[in-house]
Amino acid sequence: MAAGKEHYVGMPQLDPEFMGTQVFWLVVALIVIYFLLAKVAMPRIESILAERHGAIQRDLDQAAELKLRAEEAEKSYQQALAEARSEAQRIAAETKAEIGKELETALAKADAEIAAQSTESEARIAEVRASAVDSIKTVAGDVAADIVKAILPSAADAKAVASAVASKMKG
């Protein structure tokens, strides 16, 4: 076509004059783009994506493993805690039983001592009482004999007074 100020009439798309050069250069461009993409760009992008995918997978695996380990640690911690707790309970129960036993023996001992002391006391009291009764008998006999002697000296008979006092004290 002529260059210059003239304008095209109709559609340049349908002009067969333009077709040859277009097809030729298009095919050249497509071949260049194909090699640029298929031989250079795409393998690189593929490797980048695969690498990233691998890295993410690796990180995820690592995270899962760490999580597993943390769970295990928690489990063993809980176990140790439970063990410690049961041990503490056992020790507490043992101590309690020991203390109870000691207390019982101490109580029994104390009871026995108290019982022994009270029987002794009772014996002494009985003794004291018996001796008191004897003294009273003597004092009462003496007093009665003195009284009888003072009132009626002829009737002074120590034996009769003693038997009279004894019969009085019984009654």
Binding site: G20, T21, Q22, V23, F24, W25
Partner: peptide, 13 residues
């Protein structure tokens, strides 16, 4: 325009 002619289209390709 020959089939090998470098045109404005060639530039944009």
């Amino acid at each position: 325009l020959h089939w090998y002619t470098v045109t404005n289209q060639t530039l944009w390709l």
